[in-house]
């Protein structure tokens, strides 16, 4: 039987699926949270691309500037190009009137999706007194928070 036939056979079995299995509610909540946040992130990326492509908003860094300096390390790139030392997220919010900087917001949504999802998990675990899940969801939230705030709490 070829691999294609096997896959078709699987498909037939799936159609006769006898019952839906019960997935823990916290999994569904986590899935919904990350789905919404990723959807927003992708929408922001598309919006940023449209704004850039239609010249509705000017870019903070033009493509010509990127091509000129992209062989430099990130710190040097910004120092040579804009004379700024990047440290944290303030520079993104300070230039939101630029099409490309709007796209940066999408990364914040992608990076924080699991943090929000873990808060959802922790709430469910606390309600069910599920100590192992609660412990690791809280630890993960703290580690993620340290990662996000690292530029402000460490050099």
């Amino acid at each position: 039987m070829s691999s294609i036939e096997v896959k078709l056979e699987e498909k037939k079995v799936e159609e006769r699926r006898p019952e839906m299995i019960e997935v823990p509610k916290e999994y569904k909540v986590y899935a919904r949270i990350i789905e919404i946040m990723t959807g927003i992130a992708v929408a922001i990326m598309v919006l940023s691309l449209i704004l850039y492509g239609s010249h509705a908003l000017p870019p903070y860094v033009t493509l010509a500037e990127i091509v000129k300096y992209w062989k430099l390390a990130a710190t040097k790139f910004w120092m040579v190009l804009k004379g700024i030392k990047i440290h944290g997220y303030d520079w993104i919010f300070a230039h939101l009137a630029h099409a490309d900087m709007i796209g940066m917001i999408s990364v914040l949504f992608l990076a924080t999706a699991c943090f929000v999802g873990n808060i959802g998990l922790a709430i469910f675990a606390a309600m069910r007194r599920d100590i192992p899940l609660l412990t690791f969801a809280v630890i993960e939230c703290i580690i993620l928070l340290i990662g996000y705030l690292k530029p402000y709490i460490m050099l």
Binding site: F77, I86, Y89, M104, V107, I146
Partner: peptide, 11 residues
């Protein structure tokens, strides 16, 4: 997730 934020924070 956290490394992506770190790369973002470093430009």
């Amino acid at each position: 997730a956290a490394p992506a934020a770190i790369y973002l924070a470093k430009g």
